[in-house]
Design a protein around this nucleic acid. Sequence first.
DNA 1: CGTTCGATGCACT
DNA 2: GTGCATCGAACGT
Length: 214
Amino acid sequence: MTSGFYARPTLEVARDLIGKVLEHETPGGLASGIIVEAEAYIGEDDPACHAAAGLTARTAPLYGPPGCAYVYFNYGMHFLVNAVTGREGFPAACLIRALEPLDGIALMHDRRGRGRASAVHHDHELCRGPANLTRALGIDLGQNRVSLATSALRIVDRGMVRAPVAWSPRIGIRVGLDRPWRVYVVGNRCVSAARPLSGVAAPAAGPGPSRPAR
DNA sequence: CGTTCGATGCACT
DNA sequence: GTGCATCGAACGT
């Protein structure tokens, strides 16, 4: 995944990130997963994009070169990771919202708090949600602004088959709900449970999440 | 089933 | 001081 992949319209990048693999190599081992859900945040005119507030110390990575990570801290306890897109100087990025775990599943269970009340029980819950996946992969502000092509935190193409996707409004925001800029793999159990704020319509068409009855 | 709400820290007004 | 690109426990029905 060279930087050219990211130097394209953000919605195209979001679609093409689906099926790529996010990896994080740490002293504890390699943890990775297939990207199954992402969201686009595009420009200062997008009210939900952090760049709507302009260039600040926090949002500077969005204005930087495509292909870098934009990691930020939210709600007092969560880290969220984005891939910066578009041309340098134009603030846009794709938020990675969910992964289907591949490598380091035991490590991910440890990081999610194996044995504690907050621990998850199923592998498909490990990376379901943007804060859950950063915790499972050990991503924090130390990875802010790193290159996603050459760093321990990287996105690679493992030749996964192109799964059918659907688009919906983005999750967890109060503005910009008219823009259907969330893309996800239809029917994949690792996609975050959309807990839409009041008034958000159900996702677009498709077979719908197929819960394989146990 | 459904909805509400506390945890928890920081950037920005 | 306010408001988060969240999560999950704790309620209510």
